[in-house]
């Protein structure tokens, strides 16, 4: 499904008795047929945004359109699947949980086949007759995803889908969601504080801060490890990056506006100097250009059109890429 699925027009939401809005989204379109990720710390408005998108609450200001029209919850909810961070599973078998929505919607023709298929895809076939609540966190999350996907929604809202699950469940959940998006043309909207997850899922990424969204969230995420298990030097397997401080983690992030491009090697105090080929130039937020340079890792820099003109280079040519060690954020 291409085009805008959700359109937020000056949407804000203020909880009763609270002075400041919990969410103030301004203008935003969420495109169909791809993954959109909202990252941000606790209290940044992620839950409020999901409540809005799932039609549980309506904007206190502005207008939210779904498929180009004002949503009618009783009708449009059928098209939205929700996967919670801590899903509620009915105190019954895995199969009965997955069948619940189908029975509720009287979609029982061919139910056994559909349920078998989705259980199989999520690696749950052998668990079908087990009690859902006796499973591990990752398995329960997969049951909840199966229960949602079997209803064939157009939109999937995922709230921190892999925050409390083991690595194998996480991989399976991510790959199923990605496959669902690419094969079925589904629209996945994910909120997470995990920038690495946002990077793996790709698609459009927004950063939520104090209820406001900006599209500069996860321009650059590098996965890897710190050399020698101490802070300072981060190895992605392709490049080594100097990182200020002693924090350790499995990923480091870099905002596109922190990256400097030059045609000559900079003699400066900047600790990271790389050299690579420009692979892509596209228009980003606020009229800035997003320039992708392959230095062994793809690094995105945002620069003004006049800066790009002064640089005098184009796609396929080589540039120097510099950024300060203090510009990197470590993700644990």
């Amino acid at each position: 499904m291409k085009g805008s699925v959700y359109q937020l027009k000056g949407v804000s939401y203020t909880y009763e008795g609270s002075g400041a809005p919990a969410l103030d989204m301004g203008e935003l379109s969420i495109r169909g047929g791809e993954v959109t990720v909202f990252t941000g710390p606790n209290g940044s408005g992620k839950s409020t945004l999901l409540a809005l998108l799932s039609l549980d609450i309506t904007p206190t200001k502005g207008e939210l359109l779904l498929f180009g029209e004002r949503p009618v919850p009783s009708r449009h909810r059928r098209r939205i699947g929700i996967l919670d961070q801590h899903p509620y599973l009915f105190d019954t078998t895995v199969r009965a949980n997955v069948e619940w929505g189908l029975r509720a919607r009287k979609m029982v023709d061919g139910m056994d086949g559909q349920v078998g298929e989705v259980l199989d895809a999520l690696g749950l076939s052998s668990y079908a007759e087990r009690r859902a609540r006796k499973l591990s966190g990752g398995e329960m999350q997969r049951v909840a995803l199966a229960r949602t996907l079997v209803l064939n929604p157009d939109i999937l809202l995922l709230d921190e889908p892999t925050a409390h699950v083991d690595a194998s469940s996480r991989e399976r959940i991510e790959s199923i969601v990605m496959e669902w998006v690419s094969r079925e043309g589904g629209t996945a909207i994910v909120t997470t504080h995990d920038l690495a997850l946002a990077h793996r899922l790709g698609g459009s990424a927004y950063r939520l801060q104090d209820g406001r969204a900006s599209q500069t969230g996860v321009d650059n995420v590098f996965m890897g490890h710190f050399v020698g298990g101490v802070g300072g030097l981060f190895d992605t397997g392709h490049i080594k990056i100097n990182v200020a401080g002693k924090r350790l983690g499995e990923a480091v992030t870099l905002r596109a506006e922190e990256v400097i491009l030059s045609t000559h090697h900079l003699e400066s105090s900047v600790r990271n100097n790389l050299y690579g080929v420009i692979t892509d130039v596209s228009l980003g937020d606020g009229g800035l250009l997003m320039v992708t340079v392959d230095c062994g890792e793809r690094i995105v820099a945002s620069i003004t059109p006049s800066g790009w003109a002064d640089l005098g280079v184009s796609v396929g040519e080589r540039v120097y890429v510099s950024f300060k060690a203090s510009a990197l954020r470590v993700i644990e």
Partner: peptide, 24 residues
């Protein structure tokens, strides 16, 4: 509270939600 939210998002009617509540 997630019980009611889950029933709603799965499309449970009032009667079906009541039946599930009876069991839960």
């Amino acid at each position: 509270p997630r019980f009611f939210k889950t029933c709603r998002s799965l499309g449970g009617s009032a009667v079906r939600t009541a039946r599930a509540a009876l069991y839960e």
